[in-house]
Design a protein around this nucleic acid. Structure first.
Lengths: 139, 139
DNA sequence: ATCTTGACTTGGACTAAGTCCAATGTAGGA
DNA sequence: TCCTACATTGGACTTAGTCCAAGTCAAGAT
């Protein structure tokens, strides 16, 4: 994580207490928090941090490529700190849990040239949906 | 389209003028409107239709499996009338245009058992991202 | 043809998620 | 230590969507 802060400083980031705690929150478990959850956890470390700053900081981390924005449910966006490691998501349709997964093969290759309509295709996002073991048990 | 209305009547749908115009709007071109766009177009045919009814009707069409909800940008959800024909989406990162595409192969098969964490995986959504020819030209 | 009734529609208030901005504060270089 | 450009703040604002009580109406029953 201090790697992250170093990297960002190298890119001209001014290192404030607020940015530090946001980075610290994201660095914890490999979960996918919403902006509000990040704010709540950041506020435990730095009570006076504002929502606007959390949004700003998350936005910056996303455009610097340090964090990924995922929106699997059309509700609040979630922030995925695992940006340096290509992966996709497996989502439980019942409880919304998100797991990172690593499909085999080249996903981009699945789209034939004849189906590209002249687009320059550069990325692919995959969401697998199903029922997690926990929810299957309590069905 | 009247197939659609027939199908829905068969399922106990009460056939109102409002539901008819919403279905008519979706039936037009193969586009992906937001709820507000559907409302605007429906209001041209039936000026007093309310937003709540459009949301209700779209929600019903989705749960009946007649229409697909897609959210490729974290903003407003879009509604895809092409629900009876499995397909994925190709989105222009610049202008947001969405095209329906048909990748080759079994996309679900790309996720090895060892990467399923006990989930019963039943569906997969793929979004290809790139730049459309129009935006590439005016870059 | 009319009645009846439960399903449907309405508009407006409400909520959730996020953006914007002018005023204030501060990190880090000189 | 001082300066200042960059960062933070909180509150107003916007967008997308949900909720609800009251009124309306489709379609089966008579």
């Amino acid at each position: 994580m201090s790697d992250l802060l170093e990297r960002l400083r190298g890119r001209g980031w001014r290192l404030t207490a607020q940015r530090r705690v946001v980075a610290e929150v994201l660095d914890g478990d490999h979960v996918h928090y919403t902006a509000d959850e990040v704010h709540a956890r950041a506020a435990e470390l730095l009570p006076e941090i504002s929502r606007a700053t959390v949004y700003n900081t998350l936005g910056e981390l996303v455009s610097l490529g340090e964090v990924l924005e995922v929106s699997t449910d059309g509700r609040a966006k979630r922030y995925d700190p695992n940006a340096h490691h290509a992966h996709q998501h497996l989502v439980c349709s019942r409880c919304g849990t998100i797991r990172d997964v690593h499909p085999a093969g080249d996903l981009l290759a699945g789209l034939p040239a004849g189906e590209r309509f002249g687009f320059t295709v550069s990325a692919v996002e995959v969401t697998y949906r199903g029922i997690c073991p926990g929810c299957a048990a309590t069905a």
